[in-house]
Amino acid sequence: MAVLPIIENSTDELTAIFKDLHTHPELGFEEVRTSGIVAEKLKEYGVDEIHTGIGKTGVVGIIKGNREGARRIGLRADMDALPINEETNLSYASKTPGVMHACGHDSHTTMLLGAAKHLAQTRDFAGTAVLIFQPAEEGLGGAREMLKDDLFGRFPCDEVYGMHNSPNGEQGSVGICKGAAMAGASFFDITVQGKGSHAAMPHQSRDPLVIASALVGSLQTILSRNLPPLETCVLSVTQIHAGSAYNVVPDTAALAGTIRYFKDEVIELAERRMRELCAGFELSYGVTINVDLRNVFDVLMNDGDLSDAYMEAAADIVGKENISGTDQPATGSEDFADMLKVVPGAYCRVGHSGTTGLHNPSFFLDPEILPVGASIMARIVERRLS
């Protein structure tokens, strides 16, 4: 590993920042403490401009190189945690009940701070680095909120780069998928309004539980019987809520879940069939079914040339033998996709020794990866603004 010297000498500091953020996680749009630490550190490092309150709790820092240049490169990290109760038993485990950095956003924030320290001290580039600390990535629309606040109008970027940790047990490996790299996602809520009754007299009801249960199975036929078999789509019903007593057939039942996709025509077909199925169930059972479908994530598109540039920068740090430019698309989603719709760029994954999956209460991120990620972020700016 060829970690950049300033970052390597700051390893203890970065680890301390990471552990502090991990101990005090904050949910989306509630990252008041986190964004305060970010702004404080950027000021300490000598960043030229610091802007807070972008997209509610987001922060943007500006660093100018020591040579004239019109080009501007953006670096983005997310800051929010998840509503998960931590079960790692780490000495620095979350002290906030029911909230945990189970996706590693605390590490992403720390890595970008490490890159900021290096870039502000060396300034060995021609142009401007734009550091974007984004709130609320976990399905709450933080990227869209920053864009609504005119992120790239106020802080223009020619290219923008993001990064995510990968608990694959391969310390310092870096991978990227060119083109459509991560799925878009729609969330749905379906409410079946039936007719309740005494549980001993179900014939007097229009049982929403029976209807909702049948609907769950029918929704899966969208994938098996409507979509071409070579297309990728994932439809998961993740919640079902109904009833409050042993002896009462309830009036209503609610379903919720998500659809993941890589093509607009696929999600359009899936959503249309979902509405048609619900309309058919309404007619068949004599009930009312309300469907709320909403797009939450766009498909993340990595620019081919900029993906190559990102991997070349990463190879400077981890070596070519640890680089993969042919990763497969992931059906998970990431709202950095919204930024990439406005500004071209790329998004990579950096492996570490942890092997418990993301969004798991036992998720562990190896802090040894912090200087590696920070160095890659700093290096892409130096290469693209050389």
Rank of each mutant, 00 (worst) to 15 (best):
I73V: 15
Q121D: 06
G114C: 03
G46Y: 04
S213V: 05
M201F: 14
F336K: 03
E8Q: 15
F152S: 12
A314T: 08
L42I: 03
G141C: 06
K95W: 00
E368L: 11
P344H: 11
T57P: 00
F262Y: 14
G280R: 03
D106P: 03
L119D: 01
I222W: 11
S91T: 11
I176E: 01
V343D: 09
S35C: 09
M311T: 13
V372L: 14
V216A: 03
A136W: 08
N290P: 00
T191M: 04
D327S: 10
A315L: 12
L340W: 10
D78K: 10
L209G: 14
T110E: 07
V287P: 10
E312A: 15
S386C: 05
E49H: 06
C348G: 09
L223P: 00
S324L: 00
A254K: 15
S10P: 02
A200C: 13
L385V: 07
E312W: 10
T128K: 03
S107D: 09
G257R: 08
V60A: 05
E49D: 13
S353I: 01
P208S: 06
R33F: 07
Q193Y: 10
R294F: 13
A309H: 14
Q193G: 00
G325R: 15
T221A: 02
L219D: 12
